[in-house]
Write a protein that binds this DNA or RNA. Structure first.
Length: 511
RNA sequence: GGCCCGUUCGUCUAGGGGUUAGGACAUCAGAUUUUCAUUCUGGUAACAGGGGUUCGAUUCCCCUACGGGCUACCA
């Protein structure tokens, strides 16, 4: 395959949905795999749905994820502009060409007339209520009106659209790279609007014209476009571009984690996970939608997760660098059925990627968190903390949650546990332990262990029986990272102080 | 309603006319660990249903069911 050119063509109608991200990713992987070009085109032909900031959001999201754009909005390129709203003249030219060649016509019907037509058809029991071969000759268009009247209407500035004249009784077969042959009869299609009355093209026209002009070789897009793909084939034909028509690949959809339907923002809200790459603030309502980035997901982990949602390499490998993904990717191995979105797996990937990061980077995150909370800490100590905690976290912000014990002494020990398990022997052993600790100048995990064994032994306790009490004394909690390592990082004086504080508490409460 | 697409463990999936139907996440149990987590070991768990074709079907064909998408001057 030479000169592969693919495009990701979102509409700036809001934040980029995670399903859109996956579409972009598959396009990107395919382009890179074949040494091709990845193009970003903005399909902003619906002015009523335009949302300020959405385009910028899309660009930033792709950037964060490392989905590189070779050509298009941003980097520019030989087929600029790449924003469809800036290409109106081009579409008009081709729409008029289609009228001249008899493949399209002007239609002047008002909204009311269209509605009346549909009602009429519905009541007469027609299978479908479409503007097509069966009804077009009963409507007000350049097929039914005398040419002078058409010209008069056009000159008078009357509202009109340009419709495609769907051919009758044709079998249209397209070869989808994922689904194989898909055949549709043109009876099922209607006379789609190509140019709207506001002068903008519809998706169908703009898409076909741009893909041709931009020399797109493979159209990789969501399954929602499969039903209109035959129409697009017809358009390529009518425009005389069938020989260079791109190949199609329609991707399966992302489904709700539970229940029926496709994944929506509601599901994320309901189950507590993001469905957008970055946090998004709606410019009209001010409503905030959480993003994967802000939730603590690493871009590489999200990419890995998404890549495997609907595609697999045919091996048992699960962890992929982006280069490995590029190397292994192929359209043939994309599955045909929709994939339920399971955030559990995304978290697992994040955990895997997080622990592979160098300690310095984790320490950097910890620094920010500590600074925000107003705690000072040496880099050396931060690195030790990070090394102790890195296998215990799923998100970067978990770091502070677990490191907090080093900076904030417990307000009081876990009361339930103390009431149930605390004994006078423990009390005496910990007193002894704290006393001996005070004499130590060079604290190591090994020294601590010895001191603990010694203190325990004198009260007829096993070292293990004193471990939990010591943890409670130091952190207030019954679980946490390795006790000895933790105590070493905490330091001798802090340990002694916390033990004494706890012993006072238990004394007053229990004895 | 019409048309199109789909259906393997709870989830993502591998497989493919004869397999103990494989892996991963989740879950459960055991081991390790002072605890939790990690790690390791093991377990539970799937071919939507019915007809064909065939010596044999989860795999091929048809039907049904179910799911999804489309059916706009939205993309």
């Amino acid at each position: 395959m030479t000169n592969v050119r693919v495009r990701f063509a979102p509409s700036p109608t809001g934040p980029l949905h995670i399903g859109g991200v996956r579409t972009a990713l598959y396009n990107f992987l395919f382009a890179r795999r074949h040494g091709g070009t990845m193009i970003l085109r903005i399909e902003d032909t619906d002015q009523s749905r335009f949302v300020p900031g959405a385009e910028q959001y899309i660009v930033e999201s792709l950037q964060w994820l490392g989905i590189g754009i070779d050509e298009g909005v941003g980097p520019g390129g030989p087929h600029a502009p790449y924003r469809q709203s800036e290409r109106q003249g081009i579409y008009r030219q081709y729409a008029e060409q289609l009228i001249r060649s008899g493949h399209a016509y002007y239609a002047f019907d008002t909204e009311e007339e269209l509605e009346a037509m549909r009602t009429r058809l519905r009541q007469s029991g027609a299978a479908q209520q479409q503007y097509g071969p069966a009804v077009r000759m009963t409507m007000r268009n350049s097929l039914t009106l005398p040419p002078e009247e058409v010209q008069r209407l056009l000159n008078s500035g009357a509202h009109y659209v340009i419709r495609f004249k769907i051919p009758e009784g044709q079998q249209i077969t397209l070869h989808d790279l994922i689904r194989g042959q898909v055949t549709v009869n043109s009876e099922q299609l209607d006379d789609k609007v190509l140019m709207k009355s506001d002068g903008m093209p519809t998706y169908h026209l703009a898409n076909v014209v741009d893909d041709h002009l931009m020399e797109i070789t493979h159209v990789i897009r969501g399954e929602e476009w499969l039903p209109s793909a035959p129409l697009h084939v017809l358009l390529y034909r009518a425009l005389g571009w069938e020989v260079s028509m791109p190949r199609f690949a329609h991707l399966p959809l992302l489904l709700k984690p539970d229940g029926n339907g496709k994944l929506s923002k509601r599901d994320g809200d309901r189950m507590g996970f993001p469905v957008f790459p970055l946090t998004w603030t709606d410019p009209f309502t001010g409503e905030q939608s959480p993003g994967f980035r802000e939730a603590g997901y690493l871009p590489a982990a999200l990419i890995n997760f998404l890549a495997l949602l609907g595609w697999n390499p045919g091996t048992e490998q699960e962890l992929f660098t982006i280069n490995e993904l590029i190397e292994a990717f192929s359209l043939e191995r994309i599955s045909k059925s929709g994939a339920r979105f399971d955030i559990n797996k995304a978290q697992w990937f994040n955990q895997q990627y997080l622990r592979k990061l160098p300690d310095e980077q984790l320490a950097g995150w910890l620094s920010q968190q500590l600074e925000r909370e107003g705690h000072a800490c040496s880099m050396e100590k931060k690195l030790r903390i990070v090394a102790l905690l890195k296998e215990r976290i799923t998100f970067p912000h978990d770091l502070y949650g677990q490191a907090k014990i080093f900076f904030v002494p417990p307000a009081q020990p876990n009361a339930d546990w103390v009431r149930k398990k605390w004994t006078p022997a423990i009390q005496r052993a910990l007193e002894e332990f704290a006393g001996n600790l005070a004499k130590q100048n060079n604290l190591t995990a090994e020294v601590l262990r010895q001191l603990l064994e010694q203190a325990a032994g004198e009260q007829q306790l096993k070292a293990g029986q004193l471990m939990q009490p010591l943890r409670v004394a130091l952190t207030g909690e019954t679980t946490g990272p390795d006790l000895m390592e933790m105590a070493v990082i905490l330091g001798r004086d802090a340990c002694i102080q916390r033990i004494k504080y706890t012993l006072q508490y238990t004394q007053s409460v229990l004895f």
